[in-house]
Amino acid sequence: MTAAEAPAGRQLVYTLAITEGVRQALQEDPLAFMAGEDVAGAGSVFGIYRGLLDEFGPDRVIDTPISESGIIGLAVGAGATGLKPIVDIMFMDFIGECMDEIVNQLAKMRYMFGGKATLPVTVLTMSGAGMNLAAQHSQSLEAWLCHTPGLKVVMPATAYDVKGAIITAAREPNPVFVVMCKGLMALPGEVPEEPYTLPIGKANVLREGDSLTIVAHGRMIHEATKAADILEGEGVSAEVIDPLWLQPLDTETIINSVSKTHNALVVHEAVRFGGVGAEIAAQIAELAFDYLDAPVGRVAAPFSPVPFSPVLEQTYVPNAERIAAEARQILGTG
């Protein structure tokens, strides 16, 4: 079920959809627990876990010290020995503190042990720029994770998808990173009350079109959709695809779309060089070369740290106008 097919009904903002996803994951499995910095007493600095401590108590909703490496290590050890850890790394930027636990332990244990260890670990973390929080609180580092065999990576950008992603991750017996978008915290959307999952590795087709495929993920799906509106006013029909799962990636949906539209534009908020978009563009070039009318385009952040000054940050983060402009280039209309 995609957002488009969700039954019309209850609206929740993105933050409350996160809370509900974690609440239901904790409700449905007594071996699931949540741990992270200020997740319990404060309900997270983003307010996304408010009320969970009251509902589940301090044995299951746990404030940790400021120890990211310890937090992921906790999840690896507890996950390998029968629990279902749901852990929070407040800002995605802080994964730098725990990259060994992520890359060398969490991602590889099952493989290294000949298939013997199961790690039903969910890691929740908040990414993205746009709030003037500067170079160490604004990054989109999903490519680091996607480059590591063993991790599943989902980047939900609607209230519906974020709740579904959390429950899917919690039920999945292997490690999943749910990369959330802080720029979308106030975004409302339809969210069913009951628990539901998302199909792992299945993209969302957000909008159908026939002359250009825009593949965007994270917060950029909304800019891509706006760009498609702009282009529609110019007589261009763009298809917008949100891969949603960056690992495993839904190559098939993307290739089928490009085979139909003959043009492709890949968009993300992370820096362009070596971003997930580079992989998507390469796959399109490999698998749909004969269908392409023009080289695959890419719109992403320039190759710099995220600047503090609002004027610079606005230039830094891609937007609908830049996406539409790049689309015109590809189509030869701009």
Binding site: N132, L133, A134, A135, Q136, H137, P305, P307, F308, S309, L312
Partner: peptide, 8 residues
């Protein structure tokens, strides 16, 4: 030069 802000 405005690149860092308070936290840097």
């Amino acid at each position: 030069k405005g690149r860092g802000g308070s936290m840097h």
